[in-house]
C-alpha cells in the first residue's frame, strides 16, 4: 500500500467520524469519535515521518483536552429528546460541510502534486493557462520544512528552526493569546461568582492564604472541635 493510499484511507475515516460526530445523539459518542479523528491525524503526521509532532498532538489533544471534554460531558445530565429536536437544524450545515470537504480534498490533491511531483504539473497543464504553469513551477521559493524534517530529527528542526528560530514571534504571540485566554476565563468566572454570592464577604481569591493553608488548621478532628 502506498503512502497516498494510506492517506486517503485515513481521510476517509476522518470524514466518516465527522459525520458520526454531527449525527450522534449521545455527546459521549461524539467525543469518542473526535478522539478517533485525533488519532487519524497523528497517523497522517507519522506517514510523513514527523514522530515528535504526532506524539505531541496525541499528548496534548487526546491526553489532556479530550479528557476534560469527556469529564464535563459525563457529569452533565443530558436530555436526549431535546438534542434530537435541535439536531434537525444542523442538516443544512451538513451540505455546506460536504462542499467544504470536497474543496479541501481538491486543494490537498493539487498541492500534493505541485509540491512533491513537479512533473505532474505537465499532466494538469490542459486545465491551466500557460503562464500559470510557469508560475507554479517557479513557486517553491520558501523554506522547505519537509526536507529539514527528513534531514535531521524533527524535534531538532522544531526547536532550532521553527519555534525558536524564524517563527519565534508567532510562537510568543500564541503564548500571549493562551495566557489572555486563561486570565480572561478566570476574570469572567470570578465576576459571576461575585454576582451570585453577594452575601459572601470574601470576594477575592487570596492566593497566599490558599497556598499557606495547612491540614492541621483547616481540617479538624470531630472530637477536638467539640
Amino acid at each position: 500500500m502506498s503512502t497516498l493510499g494510506l492517506l486517503i484511507m485515513l481521510l476517509g475515516i476522518i470524514i466518516m467520524c465527522t459525520l458520526v460526530i454531527l449525527r450522534s445523539v449521545n455527546p459521549i459518542y461524539s467525543i469518542l469519535n473526535l478522539i478517533v479523528i485525533y488519532g487519524c491525524y497523528a497517523s497522517i503526521l507519522l506517514t510523513v515521518e514527523m514522530e515528535f509532532l504526532a506524539c505531541i498532538y496525541i499528548l496534548v489533544n487526546v491526553g489532556a483536552i479530550a479528557v476534560l471534554f469527556l469529564f464535563i460531558v459525563m457529569m452533565i445530565n443530558i436530555n436526549i429528546v431535546e438534542i434530537q429536536e435541535t439536531m434537525k437544524k444542523y442538516n443544512i450545515y451538513m451540505i455546506v460541510g460536504i462542499i467544504g470537504v470536497v474543496g479541501l480534498l481538491g486543494i490537498l490533491i493539487t498541492n500534493y502534486q505541485i509540491r512533491i511531483k513537479e512533473e505532474v504539473i505537465a499532466d494538469f497543464s490542459m486545465f491551466l493557462i500557460n503562464s500559470e504553469v510557469v508560475q507554479l513551477q517557479a513557486t517553491p521559493s520558501y523554506l522547505d520544512f519537509y526536507s529539514l524534517f527528513v534531514e535531521t530529527t524533527d524535534i531538532r528542526t522544531m526547536g532550532s528552526n521553527v519555534i525558536y528560530g524564524s517563527y519565534s514571534i508567532w510562537f510568543i504571540m500564541a503564548c500571549i493569546i493562551l495566557l489572555i485566554g486563561m486570565v480572561g476565563v478566570i476574570y469572567i468566572t470570578e465576576d459571576l461568582i461575585i454576582e451570585k454570592r453577594t452575601l459572601n464577604e470574601r470576594r477575592r481569591q487570596d492566593i497566599n492564604s490558599q497556598v499557606l493553608r495547612e491540614y492541621k488548621i483547616t481540617i479538624r478532628n470531630y472530637r477536638e472541635s467539640k
Binding site: 515528535f52 496525541i58 499528548l59 487526546v62 491526553g63
Partner: peptide, 14 residues
C-alpha cells in the same frame, strides 16, 4: 523510534 520518551508519555496518557 527517535522520540521514544515522548511516545511513552503520549500513549500512557491515552
Amino acid at each position: 523510534i527517535n522520540s521514544g520518551v515522548i511516545f511513552i508519555l503520549a500513549i500512557s496518557s491515552i
